[in-house]
Nucleic acid binder design. Structure first.
Lengths: 218, 218
DNA sequence: CTGTATAGTTTTGTATACAAAAAAGTTGAC
DNA sequence: GTCAACTTTTTTGTATACAAAACTATACAG
């Protein structure tokens, strides 16, 4: 992309929005953040634009930048699209996947299992992401790969929540193995179906989590 | 989004890139364009950022902004993704579509036909776009609707080319009717299938066009 | 004649200054 | 005491000025 400073600032702000430092609807003060980062307003405004295009902040003309956390409905919608994108990747990958990539999928899976055993969640996420990225790549469609990766990244902080469900990690691992099986068999439809369900269930779990949090708050 | 000026400039530049005023790889000169639009470099740089995020220009650090027309391979990839997105919209819409929306689809179709008869291509595109937008909307998934509309817009200038094929307009209209039939029957899978093919064939036609242009040039 | 180093020019990235619009605060009328 | 109009303050949008990096061209060595 472009220069280094605005990029770093955008990343830093993104991180803060993801981890909840800034609550939803918070206005991002240009001058305050500018002196916080030790730069002028110009690079900050460029960073805002990037965040706006990836949907993390809303830029209201002559008002400023406001953080925009997606609500439960939008999140469900995003999970639905994600599951369909993964299904497409899977369908395409089943026909084109290389032996090398299949080996990498198995490797990522075994490392995932090790991470589950060691209760190392960070390690789990890293390998899980590698698993999915390989499938995006093996779709053989670079544009699709990019779009899938973009949405994957955007949903990352929410996907994390849903893994707290008891037994979900184990179930997820079983699904991963079914995915590898379908891909190595070259079964296009089944690979798509299994991947769709694998991601869709994440959305559902997330939905349950939201509902239980809401009812607990009442 | 944000202010008015950068937005207008982004739109104007987008238009110029679409209609081929700027060839691929052309560097967009900040100062030259700034005086051309009668503004300073600041709004122009903001416009560049927007164009970069929608993929029309590439921003190389300390080098500048370069227009980036997608090559034939990338275009085919984009058409492939578009056809899948439309298929998803169709599958979802078949279950949820309202009578009102079905009526609008039929209306758009008949106006399309009239435009074909009158050889009014602009009118044809307008109504065609309305047709597809209704389906995106009726998917009931706002996020999906946005993403589909975004990609639709990006492919617009290329879709136009492909309609020059003799008989393509008539065939396209027949496909539209098949889509409406599947949707009004509530046949989810068939709606998805028909929509996928309808868009995929556009990609293929485009591919043929590119190939014939290339061979003609040799 | 070719390749490299260096001086000069152009162009981008950033800071600051200024103008216009929105928000906040104040005064006054009812 | 409440509401409205006006003034003040804050904040955004834009222009300009300056610094740093990249490109160009020229001179010089081999």
């Amino acid at each position: 992309m472009e220069q280094r400073r605005a990029d770093n600032i955008a990343e830093a702000l993104e991180e803060r929005i993801f981890n909840g430092t800034y609550p939803n609807g918070e206005r991002l003060d240009e001058v305050r953040l500018a002196e916080q980062f030790g730069v002028s307003r110009t690079p900050l405004r460029e960073a805002f634009q990037r965040l706006a295009l990836s949907g993390l902040v809303e830029l209201i003309p002559r008002r400023g930048a406001f953080v925009r956390q997606p609500g439960p409905i939008e999140l469900m919608e995003m999970f639905e699209v994600m599951s369909e994108l993964e299904a497409i990747c899977g369908r395409l990958a089943a026909r084109r996947i290389t032996e090398e990539a299949l080996a990498e999928l198995r490797d990522a899976n075994s490392k995932c299992k090790a991470a589950v055993a060691a209760n190392d969640t960070d390690r789990y996420y890293t390998e899980n992401e590698r698993f999915h990225r390989v499938i995006y790549r093996q779709s053989g469609n670079g544009f699709l790969e990019q779009e899938a990766a973009k949405l994957h990244k955007r949903l990352k902080p929410f996907r994390r929540q849903q893994l707290r469900f008891r037994g979900r990690m184990g179930q997820s691992m079983a699904e991963h193995e079914a995915i590898v099986a379908a891909l190595s068999a070259g079964d296009s439809d089944r690979a798509g179906q299994v991947l769709r369900d694998h991601v869709a269930v994440q959305g559902e779990k997330f939905h349950h989590l939201m509902a239980s949090l809401k009812s607990a708050a009442e």
